[in-house]
C-alpha cells in the first residue's frame, strides 16, 4: 500500500501525486518508471514515469494525464488514500555524463519524465536548453521548476496562448543550426512529437534520445507487449529501454501498437463513467 501524501492538478487533465514508496525513492534514477495498479483484484497495470523522488521522506512523484480507466481512478483518489501496488523503479536509467550542451524537448505530459533527466544532466555539468511545448497555455506543466534548472528555456504553444506560437520542432531546428551545434538532444512527449523531433535532428546528425511509453503488463520483460522495432530489431521497452536512439525507432509501428486496445478501452472508460454517474445519482437519491 502506498499512501498519497499530496495531490495537485497541473492542468485540465494532468495530475501530480506524491506517494509513499521508500525503496523506489532510494533506488530510482532519471529515466526510470513504475508500474501502478490501483487495485490488485481487477485493476490493470500501467506504466507511469517517475517525475521526482525524495529519498529522505521516502516518496516519489507521479505525473499523469487522465486517458484511461486507471488514470481516471488515480485522479479521483483523495490525499490520504492509497494505491495498492507500485512496482519499480523499472527500465534502464538515463546515461548521464558531461556531454556539453544538451537540448531537452518536452511535449505536454512528457515534461514530467524529462524533469529528472534535466536535473541529472545539469548536475553532471551540462549546459541545458529546454524546449517545452503544448497545445495551449493551460497544458504547460512544471514551467517554473524547469525555468529554475535550464540555462535557456523556450516555451511554445500550438495556439500561441503562451510563449512562441509554433511546434517544438521549430526552435529545435534553429538550435541544430547554431554553431557549435548541441551535443545531445533528449525528446520526450507524444510519439508523433518524438518522431518529428528525430526527423528534425537527423539531417544535423544530432544524437537524439527518446523515451517510449508503450502498453505493458508486467514491466519486467516477461510479456513482450511493449516491444518496438529499433533499427530493424525487436526491443522491449521495459528492459531494453525506455530510452532509445530516436533515429532508429519505428514510430509508425509503435503508434499502431499503442492503439491496439483503443476500442476496448473507450468502451471500458465509458462504462466506468456510467457507473460513477449512476452511483452519484443513487447517492443523491434519484433512484
Amino acid at each position: 500500500m502506498h499512501k498519497i501524501l499530496s495531490k495537485e492538478q497541473l492542468s485540465d487533465d494532468v495530475f501530480l501525486l506524491r506517494v509513499e514508496a521508500a525503496l523506489i525513492a532510494e533506488e530510482r534514477q532519471p529515466g526510470q518508471f513504475v508500474i501502478v495498479q490501483v487495485d490488485n483484484q481487477f485493476g490493470e497495470r500501467i506504466p507511469l514515469t517517475i517525475a521526482d523522488a525524495d529519498p529522505r521522506e521516502g516518496s516519489i512523484t507521479l505525473v499523469f494525464q487522465t486517458v484511461g480507466k486507471t488514470t481516471h481512478k488515480l485522479a479521483d483518489k483523495p490525499v490520504g488514500d492509497s494505491i495498492e501496488s507500485i512496482l519499480g523503479p523499472l527500465g534502464r536509467p538515463t546515461h548521464i555524463e558531461r556531454f556539453g550542451t544538451v537540448v531537452a524537448v518536452g511535449g505536454g505530459i512528457g515534461v514530467a519524465p524529462l524533469y529528472p533527466i534535466v536535473q541529472g544532466m545539469k548536475k553532471a555539468g551540462n549546459k541545458l536548453i529546454v524546449i517545452m511545448g503544448a497545445r495551449n497555455k493551460s497544458l504547460i506543466i512544471l514551467e517554473d521548476r524547469m525555468r529554475a534548472l535550464a540555462d535557456e528555456l523556450i516555451v511554445c504553444t500550438d495556439d500561441g496562448s503562451h510563449g512562441r506560437k509554433c511546434l517544438v520542432t521549430e526552435p529545435l531546428k534553429e538550435l541544430c543550426g547554431r554553431s557549435p551545434k548541441p551535443d545531445l538532444c533528449v525528446a520526450i512527449g507524444p510519439p508523433i512529437m518524438m518522431k518529428f523531433c528525430a526527423e528534425t535532428t537527423r539531417p544535423f546528425a544530432l544524437r537524439t534520445l527518446v523515451s517510449l511509453n508503450t502498453i505493458m503488463v508486467d514491466g519486467t520483460g516477461m510479456c513482450g507487449g511493449c516491444r518496438v522495432t529499433v533499427g530493424g530489431e525487436t526491443k522491449f521497452v521495459c528492459v531494453d529501454g525506455p530510452e532509445f536512439d530516436g533515429h532508429l525507432v519505428d514510430f509508425d509501428n509503435m503508434m499502431r501498437r499503442l492503439r491496439a486496445y483503443k476500442t476496448h478501452e473507450e468502451a471500458a472508460h465509458h462504462q466506468c463513467h456510467l457507473d460513477s454517474d449512476l452511483s452519484r445519482l443513487r447517492k443523491e437519491g434519484h433512484s
Binding site: V217, D218, M222, C223, G224, G225, R227, V228, T229, T234, D250, N253, R256, R257, R259, A260
Partner: peptide
C-alpha cells in the same frame, strides 16, 4: 510486431 501478435506469456497473463 503487427497488432494482433502476442507472446503466449502476454496472452495468458
Amino acid at each position: 510486431n503487427l497488432v494482433g501478435v502476442f507472446s503466449a506469456n502476454e496472452y495468458l497473463t
